[in-house]
Design a binder for these strands. Structure first.
Length: 457
RNA sequence: GUAGGCAUAGCUCAGUUGGUUAGAGCACCAGAUUGUGGUUCUGGGGGUCGUGGGUUCGAGCCCCAUUGCUUACCCCA
């Protein structure tokens, strides 16, 4: 059989032991903070019904969903005319009814609706699982990556928003990030701005354009708005809002003045202020909290708060995001249930921590001692000792007999095992075993009990 | 979807205007060392130069195509 050159699909990666240790450090840190704030973990299947996912992420998003082909002779079940039509969308619906999850929020909404009778609201859940996107990979962008989501459904309180800011602050600070910004905005403010220029029905174009202010500047945004049917007059009206400067309080005051004529706009200001007040009572440790009204994000289901987290220490896209959606479960038939949530992008956080060299030297959580013996007799002699070590919760291994000592010690070094125990004829005769410190190179002869005691310390 | 860059040993990469048998470091295996590694020395295995075509007396190098990877745009974690 011809051998195939081994490879993994574009944008996916293997994780070796050293990487897993670091990844688990990130996951464990985030999970511990989630738990501390009262969130409970759930998991949902890697695949969902395609119909559950389509239409939730906009036109672009739908294209990025990985579809799973039906099983069996699925082509026979499809109308031949349809196949010949070459209409991708309709043919897809005929040959695929499952897809890999694209994010954790939509599956969660489905979960809430399906389990509504067993859930105690407000329901605070967290979820740490991979998601898949058929995107073009590039720096910090993968086709399989983990999201760490925390959401609350069934609570309108803005305390939730404030707690999410605290969770970001605490979790990212715990991982050693020193300089990062939590940007916050409110969809109602954006609605107010649209109202101001009587373009409420075109809020998507407006938000998409002003979201780019950092990248393409005011001129670029103006140009894009003109192309999308906004007038010079409109742009003049909203210009002061887009170009807001100063402290969060100053921005808020200015917004209130500009949006005075918009009920919804003022509501957005009120909400932001409430969140800021909650935070003021519990000052953040590390994060900067910045009201940024250019923050719009693509997701069109946000209705209140919008979050995005960026590190200022390295060049990297956002490492977290989230917001409030008043009616996410509505599309699954459960109306009027509000939700707010955030997400950590674990893979990007990994890249950031790696670049900043912030991973702790997790004192080799691996094997602590390797027993090396010179022959089969030594191996037999070592077995009770191995059991004794493991009964004392000392991670230990016995190198199978037959290999040269050099090879066994090489193995210990490669695995970064800090201690070895040598067992040869001398040791078996005297009962004094040779314990070797692989870092210092020193060794001493001790009875088994002493060794266990010493390694346990 | 749009545009650029790269492809040579398991890994990271050299390879001169196109010229004889394609190199280095790391890793691996063996020996120096019959009971001692992480430093040293010696030797060894490893290659369809991504694939296919073309130009040429001659191609790792030039041209065309193709595949894969990668970076940026769009969008996103």
């Amino acid at each position: 059989m011809a051998s195939i050159k081994p490879s993994v699909p574009k944008g996916t990666r293997d994780f070796s032991p050293a990487e897993m240790a670091k990844r688990n450090y990130i996951f464990d840190t985030i999970k511990s903070v989630f738990r501390k704030y009262g969130y409970q973990q759930i998991e949902t299947p890697a695949m969902e019904n395609l119909s559950t996912l389509t239409g939730k992420y906009g036109e672009e998003g739908d294209k990025l969903i990985f579809k799973i082909l039906n099983s069996g002779d699925y082509l026979l079940k499809v109308d031949q005319q349809l196949l010949l039509s070459l209409n991708v969308q309709r043919v897809t619906a005929g040959i695929s009814e499952k897809a890999l999850r694209y994010d954790l929020t939509v599956p969660f909404a489905r979960y809430v609706v399906m389990h509504q009778n067993e859930i105690a609201f407000p329901f605070k859940r967290f979820q740490v699982q991979p998601v898949w996107r058929a995107d073009r990979p590039q720096k910090g962008r993968y086709r399989e990556f983990y999201q760490c989501d925390a959401d609350v459904v069934g609570s309108e309180s803005l305390l939730n928003e404030a707690e999410f800011v605290m969770i970001y602050d605490e979790a990212l600070g715990k991982m050693g990030l020193k300089d990062f910004t939590i940007k916050i905005n409110n969809r109602k403010i954006l609605s107010g701005i649209a109202e101001l220029i009587d373009k409420s029905d075109n809020i998507t174009d407006l938000t998409v354009a002003i979201d780019k202010i950092d990248k393409i500047g005011l001129d670029g945004v103006s140009k894009e708005l003109l192309e999308r049917g906004f007038s010079e007059d409109d742009i003049e009206k909203i210009k002061p809002v887009i170009l807001l400067q100063g402290t969060n309080e100053a921005k808020l005051a200015s917004l209130r003045a500009t949006l005075a004529g918009s009920v919804i706009g003022i509501k957005g200001c009120d909400e932001i202020e409430t969140v800021l007040n909650y935070i003021a009572g519990n000052p953040l440790r590390t994060a900067k909290l910045e009201l940024d009204i250019t923050l719009a994000r693509g997701l069109n289901y946000y209705t209140g708060a919008i979050f995005e987290v960026k590190t200022n220490e390295v060049q990297m896209g956002s490492i977290g995001g989230g917001g409030r959606y008043d009616d996410l479960t509505g599309m699954f038939g459960l109306k009027g249930l509000t939700g707010v949530g955030i997400s950590f992008g674990a893979d990007r956080i990994y890249d950031v921590l790696e670049e900043l060299d912030l991973f702790p030297q997790t004192a080799s959580q691996g094997t602590k001692v390797l027993i090396c013996c010179f022959d089969a007799d030594g191996e037999k002699f070592a077995l009770p000792l191995l059991k004794q070590l493991r009964d004392s919760d000392i991670p230990s291994e016995l190198y199978p007999a037959g290999a040269k000592i050099k090879k066994q010690l090489d193995y210990a070094n490669a695995r970064q095992v800090p201690f070895t125990i040598m067992i040869g004829s001398d040791e078996m005769q005297s009962g004094l075993l040779t314990l070797k410190d692989m870092v210092s190179g020193g060794q001493e002869k001790l009875p088994a009990d002493e060794i266990v005691k010493k390694l346990k310390a």
